[in-house]
Write a protein that binds this DNA or RNA. Structure first.
Length: 374
RNA sequence: GGAUGGGUUCCCGAGUGGCCAAAGGGAGCAGACUGUAAAUCUGCCGUCGCAGACUUCGAUGGUUCGAAUCCAUCCCCAUCCA
């Protein structure tokens, strides 16, 4: 673990938000950071070179999906996930815990672990904390996540408590099974939407001394103020010197609000998914580029954006590509959406450095149409 | 000129007496999407004052209680033969 470190380098005097550097064997990550998601060992529609060009410092990939296909053995044989996918910067792998939640219909959970029915071929697969660690060791991600139990919204207190306690037991098992010094392990705070449970979970995990902490089980359908409230509840109990990762969150407004509340890391499929489905982030709000009103709009997607798409193509052209079903449309929209979030985070870091994050936030929301947000 | 097969709502195409404003697909329009079972999914898609009424299945006329469906004539289209 000597190859890893996290240092908070600056606090915004206006907001208390933090700037930090997370060092890994594959490079440094400047926080607060947004991590593009590459579930199946690829950020959909993007090459690693393009990811680098838009400023990506770390990507996320997935234990469950890679276990099913192509299998961690094959990836290990290829020389690990970095080499296999041609990405030499840091990688974080999710544990498969989220699939316990999202694939609820095709799995059975017990204390020992979870039996999945593969969504690909129906075959039965068993993932436990130990199996998840083994797979993540084989993949060779820089940051591994503990195998956790995520709950839905709404969720009653008893169920949330059970899931949280099991998450804690599983976190200990993950920790006990984690041996590789070239990989860091994050625990995950759960507790659904109950302040007492969230605080209890934050404290319990803090006592376990992980390298960093995921905040899981949020952004699962609850109103945003509830999510923000949960963040505010737990932050006083999160270790100050450890990175905090709000899992699965990534609309532009949520990124800003998250940083304001002390979050250092984010990942989200939203940017890449909505890009493929014809929706783009812009500084004035969401643009559904497929809409007929853009058919003759020859201006760029976002006047303020410096990405390849915005520098070279019009809204009318992007719309045409989507209407024609051309794969380039998905690529150009993905390049833009990812660059939009990465640039947003660059600006957030700059604002923290200059002690004006609240000013930045207010300026952002003065232009960004929240009525068309997610 | 002859033979045969056809003309259905934006397009393709099903429907051959009532259960038909008319299957299905495409196109079009709109919506959803937050640790990716997602280049996916959902809704709308003749007109209106949308309950209900009205107009529509090449055209016109007819048969029938009732026609996109049957008959007559005409107009187009495709293929083949001269």
């Amino acid at each position: 673990m000597t190859k890893f470190s996290f240092e908070v380098t600056k606090r915004c005097q206006q907001t208390g938000a933090r700037l930090g550097v997370l060092k890994t064997p594959h490079g440094d990550i400047h926080t607060p950071v947004y991590m593009p998601v590459g579930t199946a060992a690829t950020v959909k529609a993007m090459t690693p070179r393009e990811l680098t060009e838009i400023g990506t410092e770390i990507i996320l990939s997935n234990t469950y999906h890679l276990h099913l296909r192509p299998g961690e053995d094959l990836i290990q044989e290829a020389g690990g996930l970095h080499r296999f996918m041609g990405w030499d910067k840091p990688v974080l792998t999710d544990s498969g815990g989220f699939q316990v939640f999202s694939l609820a219909g095709i799995r059975k959970m017990k204390e020992e672990g979870v039996t999945f029915q593969s969504h690909l071929d129906g075959s039965r697969r068993f993932i436990s904390p130990e199996v998840s660690m083994d797979i993540q060791h084989a993949l060779g991600a820089d940051i591994m996540m503990a195998f956790d139990v995520c709950t839905a919204y709404p969720c009653d207190h008893a169920e949330a408590e059970d899931a949280m306690e099991r998450t804690h037991r599983w976190a200990r098992r993950c920790q006990a099974h984690h041996t590789d010094g070239d990989q860091a392990l994050f625990g995950i705070v759960q507790g659904a939407f109950f302040e007492d449970l969230r605080i209890q979970s934050a404290k319990a995990l803090a006592d376990m001394d992980f390298f960093g902490y995921g905040i899981g089980g949020l952004s699962v359908g609850e109103p945003k103020p509830i999510m923000y409230g949960m963040l505010e509840s737990i932050m006083p109990h999160m270790p100050v010197e450890k990175p905090r990762y709000l899992m699965g969150v990534g609309s532009p407004d949520c990124l800003i609000e998250g940083v304001l509340r002390g979050v250092d890391m984010f990942d989200c499929v939203l940017a890449t998914r909505i890009a493929r489905n014809g929706t783009c982030f812009t500084s004035t709000g969401r643009v559904v580029i497929k809409n007929a009103k853009y058919a003759r709009d020859f201006s760029s997607l976002d006047q303020e954006c410096d990405c390849y798409t915005c520098r070279n193509f019009s809204r009318a052209y992007l719309r045409h590509l989507f209407k024609a079903g051309e794969i380039t449309g998905a690529r150009l929209a993905t390049i833009h959406n990812l660059r939009f979030l990465l640039r947003l985070m660059e600006n957030v870091r700059q604002a923290i450095q200059e002690d004006r994050l609240m000013d930045f936030r207010n300026e952002f929301f003065s232009k960004y149409d929240m009525t068309k947000n997610f």
